[in-house]
Each structure stands twice: as C-alpha cells, then as structure tokens.
Design a protein around this nucleic acid. Structure first.
Length: 213
DNA sequence: TTACAGATGAACT
DNA sequence: GTTCATCTGTAAC
C-alpha cells in the first residue's frame, strides 16, 4: 500500500523520547495477522514520552528489571507491559541503549481491519472508541506481552510503524501526562488537535484506601 | 463530572 | 509482609 510511505528507520527513534513523541502523531501502526483479511492499521493520535533515569514517572527510573528489560535495549523496539492486573500498554523504545526512553502509544484511529477491532472490543459504541486509551488500543490490536521486544523496523515483524502522514506542528497539542503520579507537571503528553479518538484526560487518583473494618 | 472497584506483578519495608 | 502502578467500566452526583 502506497499510503504507508515506508517503514520508519531506526534512526527516527534514536533520540530523546519527548522529541520523538510528537513526530509519531499521524504515523501508521501496522498489526500483522494470520488469515486472508490482511493487517490492521492504526493511525496514531495520542502519545506520551517517558525518559528513563531522569524521569521519576518512567518504568526505567529505578534501573532494569525483568519487566522493563526491553526499554534498556536498542531503539525501535516494542515494549509491552501488563498494568493494573488487567491491561496491556505498548511503548516504542527510544534513545540509545541503556537510556530506557519510551513513548507510550495512548490512542489511535483504526483505519483498516475495523471489523476485527470491533469484535475484540464489543463495548465500543463508536469506531472512535476502539483504540481510545492505551488499554483499549492493545486490546483492539491484540497486542500482549508475547510481542514485547518486537523490532518495529523489521519488515517481517508482527508490529511495524510506517511513515504515513505526519501531523504538522500546528496540529499538535501537548499537556501533562495522564494517570502519572510523579513529574505530573512535565508536558510530555502529545495529541492530535480536535481528534475524537484522543482519550479524555484523567488526572492521577492520589490513592485508593482500603475500606476500614 | 467525579469516584471507586477490580486483578496481577513489581517495588518497597 | 504491604503498597502501588503509563487503566477501564460502571455507578453515583
């Protein structure tokens, strides 16, 4: 398909996450699938940047663990983690090896393969809800920990990122990150202006107290 | 619009 | 052992 515009090269990711993040808006995330229907295609509309050792909100802040090992590897790979015991979230590893920079893919618009996304997300009332939010997005695209470490620059990979049509800077908005308890003031959430597939902002819920007996 | 339950892994004491 | 996390669906205001 010509609209894909070719794979984004690894160099694209080999920069600070907050530089890469806004340039990912409008790009196309391709999810390869078995069967005759061909791949799913998602146009990225919302992302958040996390920057390793200098960013207390990043999974990489306290150093490598079994879960976040992928973040400490080379850029251009997919970091998938399991959160709150019920959702997956997908990041693209940025920066250099050991820097543990990442860009969380928060939301997007399913532009191809929509019936399959609807099948996986029966609760979605409109197509704009199919991948509106990081947990919903991974559900719609059937992304889980088995895809952790996928090289999105590899033409044969199950998940890849294509150039698509990047958003002009004038159509990019930024603000505080969602659901993050630390470094809340850092405006490293980026989204496409006036796009209905962008998730609603939810500030961090300070704490959940167990009910007193 | 705001608040909370829910399930699991990882970090922390 | 305890606390909390890059969240979502549902319910009460």
């Amino acid at each position: 398909m010509s609209e894909l515009g070719g794979l984004l090269p690894r160099d694209f990711y080999a920069r600070a996450a907050h530089e890469v993040a806004p340039e990912l808006l409008g790009r196309l995330l391709l999810r390869e699938e078995e069967g005759p229907d061909g791949p799913l295609l998602l146009r990225i509309t919302e992302v958040e940047a996390y920057e390793g050792a200098i960013d207390p909100a990043s999974h990489g802040f306290r150093g490598p663990t079994a879960r976040n090992a992928t973040m400490f590897g080379p850029p251009g790979h997919l970091y998938v983690y399991w959160i709150y015991g019920m959702h997956h979230a997908a990041n693209l590893v940025c920066g250099d090896v050991d820097e543990s920079h990442g860009v969380l893919i928060r939301a997007g618009e399913v532009v191809q393969g929509r019936p399959r996304a609807i099948h996986r997300r029966p609760n979605a009332k409109q197509h704009t809800e199919l991948a509106r939010g990081p947990g919903r997005l991974t559900l719609a695209l059937d992304i889980d920990r088995s895809l952790d470490g996928t090289d999105v620059c590899d033409p044969g990979a199950a998940v890849r990122v294509y150039r698509g049509t990047p958003l002009p800077a004038s159509a990019v908005r930024s603000g505080p990150r969602t659901g993050v308890s630390k470094a809340h003031e850092t405006p490293w959430r980026f989204w496409a202006a006036d796009d209905r597939t962008v998730s609603p902002y939810r500030r961090h819920v300070p704490k959940k107290r167990a009910a007193q007996a």
